[in-house]
Nucleic acid binder design. Structure first.
Length: 249
DNA sequence: ACGCCCGCCTGTAAGC
DNA sequence: TGCTTACAGGCGGGCG
C-alpha cells in the first residue's frame, strides 16, 4: 500500500477517513487537498499514473491497481487507481500540512491563482541563475508545472530550455510570465493532456483534450505549427524535452 | 551547496 | 515469435 506510505499502516489511514464527510476540494500545486468534517484534510498526489475515478455502484468491478476505495453512505464510490504507485494519499491536519509536510509547505507561487507583477517575477528569475526548464519544473520556485507544460510554456515564450534564468531581457521575462499563465489556463480549459496510454483521465474516466493542441510535447519529427521547422527531442536531466529550434532562442 | 543521476513501480512499445 | 531494452505525467535521496 505505497499510496498511504505516510501512515504507519492501512488501519491508521482508514481510521482517519472513515465516518467523515468530504468537503471543499482545493488544489495546491500538483496536490489536491480535500476538507474533511472534523477539521482534517485528505491530501492526494496523482504521481505519474494516479487516477481518481467515480464508481456509480458497488457492483462496478474493481480494476487492477485500485489501492483505495471510499464508499459513500449516499451511494457510489471514489476510487484511487495507480498502476505505478508513485501517487499518494494521506490524511493530516491543516496545521501539519502547512508546517510539517515540506513538499506542501515549500511550494512556490501558483501562476493560476496568484497574480505576480512581471518585475517581481524577473527578480525571482535573476536570483536563481539556473536553466529555465529546470526552474519551471522546480515546485519550490513555481507550483504545478511538470514536463509537458514546461515545454509548452517555453515554446509559447519563444525561449530555449537551456536559457539561464538571469540572462533574460525584460521583454523575455514578460513573455515567459504571460506564457506560463496563458498556457496553464488553456490546458485547464481543455481538461489537461492525456498521452497515448491515456493514463490521465478525469473523475468520469474521460481523457483530456489539450494533447491535441500541444505545440511541441510528444511531437518529435513533426512540423512546428508556427514556422514549419521540425520539432526536436532532447534529454534534459534524463527527461525528454521537445522544442522548435527555430522559434525558441 | 549545487546540479545531476538513480531508483521507485508497472505497462507498453520498440528493437534485435 | 520472443526476449531484452527503453521509456512514460513525479520526486526525493544521494552522489560527486
Amino acid at each position: 500500500m505505497r499510496s498511504i506510505r505516510r501512515h504507519p499502516n492501512k488501519k491508521h489511514f482508514i481510521s482517519k477517513l472513515e465516518g467523515h464527510k468530504l468537503g471543499a476540494v482545493r488544489r495546491r500545486g500538483k496536490y489536491l487537498v480535500i476538507k474533511l468534517d472534523g477539521g482534517d484534510v485528505l491530501v492526494a498526489h496523482l504521481g505519474m499514473s494516479g487516477q481518481f475515478l467515480r464508481a456509480k455502484g458497488l457492483k462496478e468491478p474493481v480494476t487492477k491497481h485500485t489501492h483505495v476505495v471510499m464508499t459513500f453512505t449516499q451511494g457510489g464510490q471514489l476510487r484511487f487507481v495507480d498502476p505505478r504507485t508513485f501517487g499518494e494519499l494521506f490524511v493530516t491536519s491543516p496545521d501539519e500540512l502547512d508546517n510539517q509536510v515540506p513538499e506542501l509547505a515549500h511550494l512556490g507561487f501558483d501562476p493560476v491563482d496568484t497574480m505576480m507583477s512581471w518585475t517581481r517575477f524577473g527578480e525571482l528569475l535573476a536570483v536563481r541563475k539556473t536553466k529555465l526548464k529546470v526552474l519551471l519544473m522546480d515546485q519550490k520556485f513555481v507550483a504545478g508545472i511538470g514536463n509537458i507544460y514546461s515545454d509548452e510554456i517555453l515554446f509559447a515564450a519563444g525561449l530555449r530550455y537551456d536559457r539561464l534564468s538571469h540572462s533574460l531581457s525584460s521583454q523575455e521575462v514578460r513573455r515567459l510570465y504571460r506564457a506560463m499563465v496563458e498556457t496553464l489556463q488553456e490546458a485547464i480549459k481543455h481538461r489537461g493532456s492525456s498521452l497515448a496510454d491515456e493514463q490521465y483521465r478525469d473523475l468520469f474516466g474521460a481523457p483530456g483534450e489539450y494533447q491535441t493542441m500541444h505545440k511541441v510535447y510528444d511531437r518529435e519529427g513533426e512540423a512546428c505549427r508556427r514556422c514549419r521547422s521540425t520539432i526536436v527531442k532532447v534529454k534534459v536531466n534524463g527527461r525528454s524535452s521537445f522544442l522548435c529550434p527555430q522559434c525558441q532562442v
